[in-house]
Design a protein around this nucleic acid. Structure first.
Lengths: 344, 344
DNA sequence: TTTTAAAGTGCAATCGATTGCACTTTGGTG
DNA sequence: CACCAAAGTGCAATCGATTGCACTTTAAAA
C-alpha cells in the first residue's frame, strides 16, 4: 500500500537531510535560500507528491487568503454579476471567495456573519438585506479590524469602504427623460425606504419633477418590495387613481416588466399610452417587447472595485485607512418603452 | 486599552481555574461535562467576548466545514441558480461555500482545483469547462478520497456522484414537439461535442427524427460554442442551405434568442415561417416576443441535490460509497415560438 | 468497612507550516 | 594572516483547539 498519510515538509526535509524551515522557505520562494537548494527541494517535493496543507499555514500566519461575501440572493442577475467581478479580482490576487446569501433574512444574516468571523475570513464584502436595521453583527468586523466593504445596500453607521451607484442621479435621469418625452403625470414605483438606495432613487425622481416645475403628487407614489407581484399590484393601484399616470419610473426592472405585461393585458399601449422606465438593466429588459428603458448599473465593475478595495485594505493591514465611498455612474439606456412614435 | 489579543479557551480556563480541555468540551456540548460546569463556562465565554478560532480546530481535526464549488460562469442564470441551491443546503447543514469560476479556461480550472485541494475543502462540486478534456486535476480529489460531485457537465472517467438532466429526452421532446407542430425540415444548433450534454441533446433530436421517419440531414446541423454571436452565425448558415429549415431546435436559449432576433430582422416570422425551441429556460425566454418554447432544467434543485449528496458523503467518510447518477427530469415548456396560428 | 465502577475533570501531545534568532561557512579587506 | 560581513542553513517555539489517556472523587454494592 502506498504511503497513507500526506507528504509534509518534514518528509521532504528528512529525505534531503535538510531542515523543514529550509524546505518551507524554498517552497515559498524566499530569496535567502540558495538557487541550487531551492531547485533541489522543488524537484523533490514534486517527486514526493507534496501538496501544502494550508490549514497549518493559516493557523500560524492567522490569515486565510479568503474573502467572505454576503448578499441577499445569489441568483439575481445583479448580485451574480457582482460576485463574478469579485471572483475575478480575487483569483488574480490569490484569494478564494466564500459566498453566503442571507435571503433578506436578518437572523440568517447574523448567523452567517458570525460564521465568517469564526472562519477568519481576511475581509468581508456585504450587501445588507431588505430587513436589516440593526448592524451589531457587522460592527464586530470593524471592532476587530477585519476589513469590510459594503456595496449596493450599505450601512452608513459603520466606517468602511462603500461601493454604490449614483441612485440619486439615476432617479433624476429617469424622471428627466420621461419629462423630456412629454410625460406630465409621472408615477414612481419605489422600494422599501429603510434602504438608502431607494430613498435616493425617490429623491432624484422628486428633484427632477421639481426642476421641471411639476408638483409631486403623493398619490402617484407606491412603495413595496419590488417583486413581480408587487409590480402588478402597484400598477393596478395607480390605474385606479382619478388622475392616471402617463409615465412610470420603476425602481427596478422586475416591476417595470410586471407593469408592461399588465398594461399589455389591459390593452394599454407602452409607450404610446404610458411610458415606462426601470432600473438596473436586467438581461430580459433588452429582449422583451417593448424593450425597457432603464438605468444601467455596472454589477461586474462594482464587484471588481469592491474586491480591489478590500484586498488593498487586507494587504495594508497596519496602515491607517481612509474610507472611500465610490459612486459608480449610472447610465440611462433608452429603449422602446419610453420613446413614443418610434417607427424604425 | 482593552485586551489586544483574542480571548482563547485558555483565557477562559484560567479565569475559572479549570482546564482548557474542559472549556473546549463544554463549548462543544460534550455530554461528559456536567451541566453546572457547562453553564458556567458558557456564561463566562460570553462575558469575555470569546469567539472561536476555527483555524486551530480545522488544523487539528483536518476538517474545514467548507464545500468548494467550481463552475464556468457565476453570472449565468443556470449556474447562479445551482449555486443558490447548493448554498441553501450547505447553510442548513453548517457548511460554508467557496465558489470559483473557471471562465471555461482549462488552465484557470486546474489552478483552482489545486487551490481548493490545498485549502482542504471537505468536498467539491464541479461543472467542467467547455475546453476541459484532461481530468488529472480532478482525479487528485478522487485519489485522496475527497468527496466529489459533478453536475451538468460531468466527467464519466472519474467515479463520483453526478447530477445531470435528461439531455437526451430533452432533445427528443424538443424535436418531437417540432414534428408534431408540422415541422418537416428540422435543424439543430448544437454545442461542442466533447461535452456529453450536447452529445445527448443531439442524440435525442436524431432519434426523434428517426422515429418519425424523417432522415437526418447533416447540412441541417451546426455546432459551436452557443454564444449569442454563434447563434447569429448559425442561423445565417442555415438560411444559405438550398433546403431551408422550417423548425430549429437550439441547444440553449441564448442561441434561440439570437435566431429569433435575426429572423425578425430579416422579416421571417417565428413561428409562422420557422418554429424555434431552445434549451434551459432562461428568464428572458418567457418575456421575449415571441416567447420561447424551451426545455426547462431545474438549476436550484440540482444544486440542492448536489450539496445533499456531497454532504452525506463527507459525513460518512469511512463508509464505502455507491456512486449515483441522478438524472433530473427535463420538461418541455411550450410557448409562442413553436406554435403556429396561436390567436388567443 | 472496603472495594469497585462511574462521573467528572485534567494533562499534554498533536496537527504542519512559519519564522525569529542562532550558528556555520566562505570570501573579501585591512 | 586575521578579522569581519554576508550568505546560507538550522533550531525550535509558536499558533489554539481537540482529544486519548490519566487521575480524582463519589456513590453504590459486596
Amino acid at each position: 500500500m502506498e504511503k497513507r498519510s500526506e507528504t509534509t515538509i518534514h518528509d521532504i526535509a528528512r529525505e534531503l537531510n535538510i531542515s523543514a524551515s529550509t524546505v518551507s522557505r524554498a517552497l515559498n520562494n524566499n530569496p535567502i535560500i540558495s538557487e541550487p537548494t531551492r531547485k533541489l527541494i522543488e524537484k523533490t517535493a514534486k517527486a514526493m507528491g507534496y501538496r501544502p496543507n494550508i490549514l497549518a499555514a493559516n493557523f500560524r500566519t492567522k490569515r486565510t487568503n479568503t474573502i467572505g461575501v454576503m448578499l441577499p440572493l445569489i441568483n439575481r442577475h445583479f448580485f451574480s454579476s457582482v460576485i463574478s467581478g469579485i471572483e475575478e479580482v480575487a483569483y488574480d490576487q490569490g484569494f478564494t471567495v466564500t459566498i453566503s446569501q442571507s435571503n433578506d433574512n436578518f437572523e440568517k444574516e447574523t448567523k452567517i456573519a458570525q460564521t465568517l468571523f469564526s472562519n477568519r475570513v481576511d475581509g468581508l464584502i456585504v450587501s445588507i438585506g431588505m430587513q436589516t436595521t440593526n448592524y451589531d453583527h457587522l460592527k464586530l468586523f470593524a471592532e476587530k479590524k477585519v476589513p469590510l466593504v459594503f456595496f449596493d445596500r450599505v450601512v452608513d453607521k459603520i466606517k468602511a469602504h462603500k461601493i454604490i451607484v449614483d441612485d440619486y442621479r439615476g432617479g433624476f435621469k429617469a424622471a428627466s427623460h420621461l419629462i423630456e418625452q412629454g410625460g406630465k403625470r409621472i408615477a414612481h414605483i419605489g422600494g422599501p425606504l429603510n434602504l438608502k438606495i431607494y430613498q435616493d432613487r425617490l429623491s432624484g425622481y422628486k428633484d427632477a419633477l421639481e426642476k421641471a416645475g411639476i408638483p409631486v403628487n403623493e398619490s402617484m407614489l407606491v412603495h413595496n418590495s419590488l417583486t413581480r407581484e408587487d409590480g402588478t399590484n402597484a400598477i393596478k393601484r395607480l390605474l385606479q387613481n382619478p388622475e392616471k399616470p402617463d409615465a412610470i419610473f420603476c425602481a427596478n426592472d422586475t416591476t417595470a416588466l410586471s407593469v408592461i405585461l399588465y398594461l399589455r393585458k389591459k390593452g394599454i399601449k407602452v409607450p404610446d399610452d404610458i411610458m415606462v422606465v426601470g432600473f438596473s438593466n436586467e438581461p430580459f429588459s433588452e429582449v422583451v417587447t417593448p424593450s425597457i428603458s432603464t438605468i444601467k448599473q455596472p454589477g461586474f465593475e462594482m464587484g471588481k472595485k469592491a474586491a480591489e478595495l478590500l484586498i488593498k485594505q487586507i494587504k495594508q493591514k497596519d496602515k491607517p485607512v481612509r474610507y472611500k465611498t465610490l459612486v459608480m455612474p449610472t447610465e440611462l439606456v433608452i429603449r422602446e418603452s419610453s420613446v413614443k412614435n418610434r417607427n424604425k
